[in-house]
């Protein structure tokens, strides 16, 4: 972090895909995108990293977004950590996430202190009350965007909705400890999805075999070969090719 941002010239100089030349440049880029992001930084991240700086191409961004969303923790921080690591090792991770957090946390600190100072004023109190309602609305709309993706989810809309409703009931209404509910329902939902995905790929193998002309005896070995090939394609071909990139990816998480 303390290193002077003297640009190392990055091997091939200006050849190769553009990338940050120094930790400082990385820090400033993430700082800039954080300061533009009100109510969620991800859409801004796309505009800055892909469209303006060209540090990532759109496919890389989607891949990174998907990864950031499977992983626990704040998505944008995960992306910053992974990108920083890719370019500068752990110091890059620190620089990128510090860029995201440094100034915004000072601003938030300032706002929180200011609010505390004036919270007895009815107008300030009213404003914050209304903002709280709007904040709830924003979170609920993110949830509904996720709900739209259930149509493409292997669990399907009905099972997906049932699981979501169970979550709302247990955690939101009955206030059961979230840890235990997640440890119970998480593996269950994952197993269900795994079973559906497996069955689908098995059906596809069966369809390929059925479609193939079957000169019986020679076919035994060939069938296995086909099955293996199909399986390989299954594993390789991104789900994205059928369902669009980021099947569970709402583009703007709050």
């Amino acid at each position: 972090m303390g290193d002077p941002p003297a640009a190392p010239g990055n091997e091939a100089g200006s050849d190769g895909p553009p990338r940050p030349r120094s930790l400082l440049e990385l820090f400033l880029a993430f700082n800039r995108l954080a300061l533009q992001g009100f109510g969620g930084v991800l859409p801004i991240a796309h505009r800055e990293l892909v469209e303006r700086l060209h540090w990532l191409n759109p496919d890389e961004f989607v891949e990174l977004l998907a990864l950031g969303q499977v992983l626990p923790g704040p998505n944008i921080i995960n992306m910053a950590v992974i990108l920083g690591e890719r370019w500068f090792g752990w110091r890059g991770s620190v620089a990128a996430s510090a860029g995201l957090l440094a100034l915004p946390s000072v601003i938030v600190l300032f706002l929180a202190t200011l609010y505390q100072e004036f919270s007895s004023q009815p107008l300030v109190n009213g404003a914050l009350r209304g903002m709280g309602v709007a904040a709830a609305g924003l979170v609920i709309s993110t949830a509904l965007k996720l709900w739209k993706t259930l149509a493409r989810n292997p669990l399907g809309r009905i099972w997906g909705s049932v699981l979501a409703a169970a979550m709302v009931l247990l955690v939101g209404l009955l206030r059961w400890p979230m840890l235990w509910v997640l440890l119970g329902l998480g593996p269950l939902a994952t197993a269900l999805a795994w079973w559906v995905l497996r069955r689908r790929s098995a059906e596809r193998v069966a369809a390929v075999i059925a479609a193939a002309p079957a000169p019986s005896t020679v076919a035994a070995g060939a069938t296995v070969a086909v099955a293996v090939a199909v399986e390989a394609v299954e594993e390789d071909s991104p789900e994205g090719s059928r369902t669009g990139p980021g099947h569970s990816a709402p583009q703007d998480f709050p």
Binding site: Q69, N153, G186, A189, L192, A193
Partner: peptide, 8 residues
Amino acid sequence: AITAGLTP
């Protein structure tokens, strides 16, 4: 499967 299961 993990992604799909955790989404709901």
